[in-house]
Amino acid sequence: MKAKRKRSQQRYDDNPLAYVGDSPIHGRGLFARRAIAVDEYIGSYRGRRTQTNGMHVLWLWNEERERWEGIDGKNEMRFLNHADEPNADWWGADLYAIRPIAKDEEITFDYGWNEDDETEDEQ
């Protein structure tokens, strides 16, 4: 089993700034390979466009279409975990550091919702 997990992590090993590893937050997470400066580009969320929710779907607001659109993550960014005090945030599908991130620190972002939020479909 351990060798299988290692091979899986190697699939996501092409980002020069980040790697996938075991997370104390949840399952696996994304970690800094080296120190990352404020406003430094970390990577982009890649995958097919979708309107269906799923485990690795990142929802982004499309201002032109005035609707939420999803990307079903297929790269290392799919392992990002939530934090109330994150160290990174999205500009579209691109992730940037919002504070200095130390080498081997888990990279996180705020999912931007809580259990009290309602979607338009629920209203």
Rank of each mutant, 00 (worst) to 15 (best):
P16Q: 08
P86K: 09
Q51R: 15
W113N: 07
D116I: 05
R48V: 08
K74F: 03
E122T: 09
E122H: 09
R5A: 13
H26R: 12
E64M: 14
N87A: 04
I25W: 00
G29R: 03
A37Y: 07
D13R: 10
F109H: 02
W61T: 02
E85Q: 12
I71H: 08
K4C: 08
E63T: 13
F31V: 03
E122G: 03
T119A: 13
R5H: 09
Q51I: 11
N15S: 13
D72T: 04
E69T: 06
L60S: 08
R11Q: 13
V20K: 01
I98Q: 01
Y96A: 06
D94A: 06
D14I: 04
P100E: 14
P86D: 09
D39W: 06
D110V: 01
D22G: 09
W68F: 10
D121N: 07
D89R: 11
Q10H: 10
F31E: 04
Q9M: 13
A35H: 00
I42E: 03
W61S: 05
L60F: 02
I36E: 01
S44I: 00
R5S: 12
I107N: 05
N81S: 12
R11D: 07
F109I: 02
H56F: 15
D116P: 01
E64L: 15
R46M: 11
L95H: 06
Q123M: 04
A102T: 01
E118Y: 06
H82C: 08
R78G: 07
L95G: 02
D22N: 13
I25A: 12
V38Y: 02
A83R: 05
Q10I: 11
V57Q: 10
P16A: 10
V20F: 06
R7N: 09
W61L: 05
Q123V: 07
R99S: 06
W61E: 08
A83S: 15
G43C: 02
A97E: 04
N87I: 02
G43P: 02
D94G: 07
S44G: 09
G112R: 07
H26M: 06
I42F: 07
G29W: 00
G70Y: 11
G92Q: 00
K4V: 09
Y12F: 15
A18N: 12
E122D: 10
K6L: 13
V38L: 13
G92N: 10
T119P: 08
Y45M: 09
A37M: 11
L95T: 00
R48H: 10
A18S: 13
V38I: 15
G43L: 00
D13E: 15
R33W: 01
E69F: 08
N87Q: 03
